[in-house]
């Protein structure tokens, strides 16, 4: 079954849909957690600490977090590999352009590939910035509130983040609806619901994530 799926365009797209939905579910939770920054450093840092204790005493300190990380890395790798392979195939299948050009499909649809690449690059930067602190001057492990405020006190920190969140909104807008079609859940009668849900998810995620840098910029969070 795995072979049938991975070796066909339809099946590989299903892998993209499932991995995309896994990441999407994570992002909704992540966005929600981020909003705790508006309740001050104690709440936020305590929340970050609690994340490491989920599942105790059955799970040891940080075990649950590592399970989540492994699943997410697997999802990102599967998603990006399938995206790369399918995109190469798509470009090969249409080698000659029409002389008479016209814009095809919606903006969100046309930006899936570049938007995806932007998201991938952002992901690397984001981890190096706020998880490992590699590219973060004066990073203090265990003090996420301080680190977040420091990141969004730089112009490039804000610029990178805002751009990535716009890309995320567009990606989710087309992605969520697409995943429903890929997995066979769409239909004529259910389409309005799915389109509305996709737009709502995109909007809520983008606004929710952007609220944090805007909070720092306006001095609401400091």
């Amino acid at each position: 079954m795995t072979r049938t799926l991975w070796h066909s365009t339809v099946g590989k797209k299903a892998v993209m849909a499932v991995s995309g939905l896994i990441m999407l579910a994570y992002l909704v939770v992540h966005m929600f957690g981020n909003l705790k920054i508006f309740f001050g450093p104690d709440t936020f840092d305590a929340y970050a600490h609690w994340l490491r204790t989920i599942g105790e005493p059955f799970m040891h300190y940080e075990w649950t977090l590592w399970v989540v990380r492994v699943v997410l890395v697997a999802a990102v790798v599967a998603h990006a590999t399938a995206a790369y392979q399918l995109s190469r195939r798509d470009l090969r299948a249409r080698p000659d352009r029409y002389v008479h050009r016209r814009p095809r499909a919606s903006y969100a649809t046309r930006t899936m590939r570049w938007g995806g690449v932007i998201l991938g690059l952002f992901l690397v930067w984001h981890l190096l910035d706020l998880t490992t602190g590699t590219v973060h001057a004066g990073f203090r492990p265990g003090h996420p509130y301080e680190n977040v405020v420091a990141t969004f006190s730089t112009w490039y920190g804000n610029a990178v983040y805002l751009l990535a969140m716009l890309a995320l909104g567009l990606h989710v807008r087309h992605g969520f609806w697409s995943a429903a079609q890929t997995l066979g859940a769409g239909s004529r009668t259910r389409d309005r619901l799915l389109v509305t849900l996709a737009n709502l998810l995109a909007l809520v995620l983008t606004l929710g994530f952007i609220a944090v840098p805007v909070g720092v910029m306006t001095g609401l969070v400091s």
Binding site: T9, V10, K13, R89, A93, A105, R110, W177
Partner: peptide, 16 residues
Amino acid sequence: VAQMDAEGFGGCTLAG
């Protein structure tokens, strides 16, 4: 679907 892939057609991106 296997034949469709073998003929070198591309995949669906739901462009519509």
